[in-house]
């Protein structure tokens, strides 16, 4: 089984970078794991879906703004509340991009095999290379959540 943990975000847009930070931390500990790829992407939509081809299970880690307290973790499915990168990408959302990919014959994970770990952001509109304190504090918890997802996969 091929698994992917993909951190999403913009590296210079404050809390929007949190998905990238989590992916980097996971990669440091799990990079050598057989069947696991850990990557970072700054895109969404079709460009994102192109990165999912060939994997059986995917965990997307991304910033989200729902009004909850900054740093709150959200476990989401495709098609539920969109995170920053799954909502848009110049036109089409993740669910539709997956469908376009499938219709073109791409080998994509089933929708039920894609989990989204959303991390509540405080500010995604101010250019900065640092996270706000509450979001920074959430990084270790998000890494732990990613590792739990990984162990579930291994149990499966």
């Amino acid at each position: 089984m091929r698994s992917l943990i993909l951190g999403l975000g913009n590296a210079i847009l404050g809390d929007d970078a949190v998905g990238l930070r989590v992916a980097r931390a996971v990669a440091e500990r799990w990079a050598e794991t057989d069947g696991l790829s850990v990557a970072e992407e700054e895109c969404g939509g079709l460009a994102l879906v192109e990165q999912l081809a060939g994997f059986d299970r995917v965990l997307l880690v991304d910033a989200i703004q729902t009004g909850a307290a900054p740093g709150t973790l959200h476990h989401l499915a495709v098609g539920s509340v969109p995170t920053q990168r799954t909502a848009t990408a110049h036109g089409i959302n993740l669910r539709m991009a997956l469908e376009v990919g499938r219709r073109s014959g791409m080998s994509l994970p089933a929708e039920s095999a894609i989990t989204i770990l959303g991390i509540e952001a405080a500010d995604v509109l101010t250019f900065a290379e640092t996270l706000s304190p509450d979001v920074e504090d959430a990084v270790p918890r998000a890494v732990q959540a990613a590792e739990e997802w990984l162990s579930q996969k291994e149990d499966a």
Binding site: N10, L13, D16, E42, C43, G44, Q84, R85, A87, T88, A89, H90, G91, I92, N93, M96, V124, L125
Partner: peptide, 13 residues
């Protein structure tokens, strides 16, 4: 349009 110059963009559905 590509306001805000970020992927937190407008159009689509």
């Amino acid at each position: 349009p590509c306001f805000g110059c970020a992927t937190h963009s407008l159009p689509g559905q």
